[in-house]
Write a protein that binds this DNA or RNA. Structure first.
Length: 337
DNA sequence: ATTCCACCGGAATAGCGGGATA
DNA sequence: TATCCCGCTATTCCGGTGGAAT
């Protein structure tokens, strides 16, 4: 059934992209000055999840690397690398200059090392950059003439709202590439390509792919997740092809798999909060705090709980309805529109 | 209309931990 | 070993806001 499971991974970068040629070209053009030793404007990739922003950034930079082997590329996801220190450290790591760096190393030292490494251009892809908490890191990048940022986020307005004035004015110039949701036909084409490379021939038919594509609602990450989940089920049951029945099982499975993984990454106290919200379905803040305080031995402060809650809202695990006094929290229901 | 109050979230600070340095 | 330094999390403090109560 499965020939190559790397192809079914969501972070797999295909050797040929399907349906994103315009976006690839825009980004390539934006980075073109690098080929002649110049400095590109910062590039922005905007769009909802699962529309290929990350994939296209990696793909384009792989191609650039072929034309300009001296160029270095650092890929950082700001969900994890959300402080100035971590961003600088991540960039140093990408160019193999992170030796002897520890957390008591002054940030000026990190910055100095980056500035000294100006013999080759460095493209810094900052994914989910709206999660970056210290936007001073972006100002740092701007001050490094050999570093070209590629910034990935969902929406332009929200991203710029989080910047301070200094950063905002520096980044006002720059190339924007907007990604829209995939249509069903486009998703089918993407899935077909993955199935051709990753599965035995004839494992899935056009109709099966269409079923997956429709269930994924324009999100390629979900679509590929469904395909992977169905293929694995088929594999363990020794089936030769993906029946409608298998797909029907895989669809909700792929939806919840991501959430389960996210919940597992929460700290104990955060998970208690999540479970309490889950149990109640919908709950007012005061009530939630009280239940939490009754439930755990050494409760965290309410301010900390609010931090946890906003974090879980960011993760799309729970939803905040209303604001200020009238607010309630509830579990995000799995079905989308 | 006015006051009250629950709640949010920004900013500054404390405290912990762990590597470096002497 | 004692001390310094600094990132990181949680806490403290507090101003702002909108629904509820009067």
């Amino acid at each position: 059934m499965i020939v190559d499971d790397r192809v079914l991974c969501e972070d797999f970068v295909p050797s040929e992209v399907v349906h994103r040629h315009d976006e690839v070209n825009l980004l390539s053009e934006a980075l073109e000055p690098l080929l002649s030793g110049g400095r590109p404007e910062p590039a922005f990739l905007f769009g909802p999840t699962g529309v290929g922003k990350t994939c296209i950034a990696r793909y384009t930079l792989d191609r650039l690397g072929e034309q300009l082997p001296s160029a270095r590329v650092a890929y950082l996801n700001c969900w994890q690398e959300y402080t100035r220190f971590r961003v600088l450290y991540g960039l140093l790591e990408a160019i193999d200059r992170s030796f002897d760096v520890h957390r008591s190393t002054p940030k000026d030292e990190l910055f100095g090392r980056l500035r000294a490494a100006d013999d080759a251009p460095l493209v810094a892809i900052l994914d989910e950059v709206d999660q970056l908490e210290e936007t001073a890191a972006l100002y740092d990048l701007h001050r490094l003439p050999h570093v070209s940022p590629v910034l990935i986020a969902n929406r332009e307005e929200e991203l710029f709202a989080s910047f301070d004035d200094r950063v905002r004015s520096r980044l006002r110039a720059g190339v924007r590439v907007q990604f829209d949701r995939y249509g069903t036909d486009e998703l089918v084409a993407i899935l077909d390509e993955r199935a051709r490379q990753g599965l035995e021939p004839g494992a899935v038919d056009e109709e099966g792919l269409r079923t997956i594509a429709e269930a994924a609602a324009g999100d390629a990450r979900v679509a590929i997740g469904i395909l992977r989940s169905a293929a694995r089920r088929a594999q363990t049951r020794g089936r030769e092809e993906l029946s409608g029945e298998l797909l029907a099982e895989a669809i909700p499975d792929a939806r919840t798999a991501i959430r389960r993984k996210t919940v597992e990454s929460l700290l104990d106290h955060q998970r208690v909060l999540y479970d309490l919200v889950d149990e109640a379905g919908e709950i007012a803040p005061g009530e939630l705090y009280e239940r939490y305080e009754a439930y755990v031995d050494e409760p965290k402060t309410r301010r900390t709980l609010r931090n946890y809650l906003t974090k879980m809202v960011h993760y799309d695990l729970i939803e905040a309805v209303g604001e200020k006094r009238g607010r309630t929290y509830r579990i995000v229901d799995g079905e989308r529109e």
